[in-house]
Computed example of a mutant assay.
Amino acid sequence: MRQLALGLELSGQRFLWVVRSPSDEGAVSDNYYDAESKEDPFVFLPEGFVERTKDVGFLVSSWAPQIEVLAHEATGGFLTHCGWNSTLESLVHGVPMVAWPLYAEQHQNAVMLAEGIGAAIRVPEPKRKETIAGVVKELMAGEQKGAAVRATVADLQKAALDGLREGGAATTALAEVVEKWAT
């Protein structure tokens, strides 16, 4: 988390970061947080980070309305764990992604998004502040891979919206399932 914070700062890009304390369940949480940080999730951030980024960063503790954030015209990128719901929400709203999978199917989703369809840029290992900053800058303003990802996501958003409209592929398929089940 410290490297992510420093990478966001180093990128020079504006950001909204929802910083959450983990649930009390699971050993993974214990690797990164202690009892003090569960009370205040900002304690693990680098010293002075909040003050240094106050003009470009906005930190939120625990929760933000993700769909509203993704739908906002000022949202230019989304650092995501690559869960399927977040991925679909990002694509429907035309927001390119930085892929940061944590576990389970998220790794496969990240490969598909970054290497398959080109809708994300994956943060390479090791995840250090310089690589994080580079990926964030490339996604937001890059003229090579970032530009290609932004164009791909715009095309995918159009296709998603076409599929969701009345008579589109998604609504038609759902109507067929409902009709089949109703008879």
Rank of each mutant, 00 (worst) to 15 (best):
V60S: 11
V43Y: 01
I117F: 02
G83T: 12
A35K: 15
A27M: 13
G48D: 09
G83E: 13
A71C: 10
M1P: 08
L6V: 08
G134H: 01
S29Q: 10
D55S: 15
G7C: 06
G116C: 03
T131G: 07
V111E: 09
Y103A: 15
E73Y: 04
L8Y: 08
L45V: 11
G57L: 06
L8V: 07
K38E: 10
F15E: 06
L113V: 02
S62F: 10
I121G: 03
P65K: 03
I132A: 05
T75E: 01
R122M: 09
W63Y: 14
I132C: 05
G26E: 13
S90K: 01
E39V: 15
K129Q: 12
D40G: 11
R52C: 13
R128L: 09
S86Q: 06
V136P: 00
E51K: 14
E105Y: 08
W84E: 12
W17R: 09
E25R: 14
H72L: 13
S21I: 04
F44N: 10
A114Y: 05
F49Y: 15
P22M: 09
G94R: 06
L102T: 11
V43K: 14
L45E: 11
V56M: 12
V98H: 07
Q3Y: 00
H107A: 02
A99D: 03
G134C: 01
V136Y: 02
